[in-house]
């Protein structure tokens, strides 16, 4: 399901910091932003936790995503449309 992103591909990356939002507002913000994504766009969401429920919705809606744990309270989640 999750594809590797080629470093040579050019993407417009929107950074979305949801670390100071209460549950479930991070999910709302991220999914609303995801609805606006074009084929060459991606979202880099900064999250306090690994949002497992969000992942299942992203999968259902046909998005790809990957996560990178930077620290105990910083997870970087990259989201893009399935081509």
């Amino acid at each position: 399901m999750v594809q590797n992103l080629s470093k040579n591909e050019s993407f417009n990356t929107v950074t979305l910091d949801v670390r100071e939002l209460e549950p479930c507002e991070p999910m709302v913000r991220i999914l609303e932003a995801a609805e606006q994504l074009g084929d060459n766009d991606r979202i880099l969401a900064l999250h306090r936790k690994e949002p497992f429920p969000l992942f299942s919705i992203l999968k259902e809606r046909g998005y790809n995503f990957s996560t990178d744990k930077k620290s105990e309270d910083l997870f970087e989640i990259l989201i893009w449309r399935t081509s």
Binding site: M1, V2, F52, F55, S56, K59, E60, F65, S66
Partner: peptide, 11 residues
């Protein structure tokens, strides 16, 4: 490094 996840939905 990014890693992918595959998860089932909540019950």
């Amino acid at each position: 490094m990014y890693r992918g996840l595959s998860l089932d939905q909540a019950p």
